[in-house]
Amino acid sequence: MKTAESPTPTSDSTSIETYVAVQPDGTRALDFPAIRETRPITWSAALEAIVTIEHGGRPDLFVVTLDDSHPANCSLAQQPAGDYAGWCSCGDFTETGVCSHLCALRQRATLNGVAIPSRKP
């Protein structure tokens, strides 16, 4: 079974810590382990998709495309307590507060494909 929430780092590379002070209005707390359990279709869709991620104008901003669909603008940052806060321009996020775009960002970050910044306390 594929999973992207492995606690084991996949790289020995070091990175510069990046921080953001604010995120877009409408940003919500995201508990990715709970999302994986309670929203397995959303989590799996992100895990199995062909994902393209481009960085935006700030460290927390990304343009995420899943399986050649319309791109979504996203923001994702890790909170001081270790949890995450995110926002997405897609309809699924607007309706439910969870979407495959943000799940894909978190999965790729776990696999060292994307650097997610920390939010300043």
Rank of each mutant, 00 (worst) to 15 (best):
S69P: 02
H70S: 07
G26F: 14
E37Y: 08
Q107W: 09
D25N: 05
T42E: 06
C74H: 07
F93K: 05
E5N: 12
S13Q: 14
G97E: 12
A85V: 10
E17K: 14
S118V: 07
Y84N: 01
I50E: 15
E48M: 12
V20F: 11
P121K: 08
G57I: 00
F62P: 04
A49C: 07
F62I: 01
R108W: 06
K2F: 05
T96D: 03
A115E: 15
G26S: 10
P7N: 09
G113T: 01
C74Q: 04
L61W: 06
Y84Q: 09
D31H: 15
Q23G: 13
V22W: 09
L66N: 07
V51N: 00
A115M: 10
T27M: 09
D25I: 05
V98Q: 01
L102D: 06
D60I: 02
T3L: 06
S69N: 09
E37V: 01
E5H: 11
A4T: 00
A46T: 02
N73F: 08
T14L: 15
A29E: 07
D68P: 02
G91A: 12
W87I: 00
I116V: 15
L61A: 09
N73M: 07
A4F: 03
S15G: 03
C74W: 12
H55Y: 12
P71V: 04
K2R: 02
C90M: 08
V64P: 00
D83Y: 13
P59F: 08
I53V: 15
I41N: 09
P59E: 04
F32R: 00
A49Y: 12
R58T: 15
P80H: 09
V114M: 02
A109R: 08
L102M: 05
Y19D: 00
I53Y: 10
A4I: 00
T18P: 02
D68E: 10
V20R: 09
G82V: 08
C99A: 11
S6R: 12
C103P: 10
T94E: 15
A4W: 04
I41R: 14
A115Q: 15
A109L: 07
C90Y: 09
R119F: 13
M1G: 15
R58S: 13
P7Y: 10
D31F: 07
S6L: 14
W43G: 02
A45P: 03
S44A: 14
T8I: 15
P71I: 05
S44C: 07
P59V: 04
C88I: 03
F62H: 09
D25F: 04
A21Y: 08
P7G: 13
V114A: 01
T96G: 03
V64M: 02
V22E: 13
T65F: 05
F93R: 05
P71F: 07
E95S: 14
P33G: 11
V114W: 00
P40F: 13
S44M: 07
C103S: 15
R58H: 06
I53N: 03
E37R: 13
V98F: 08
V22N: 13
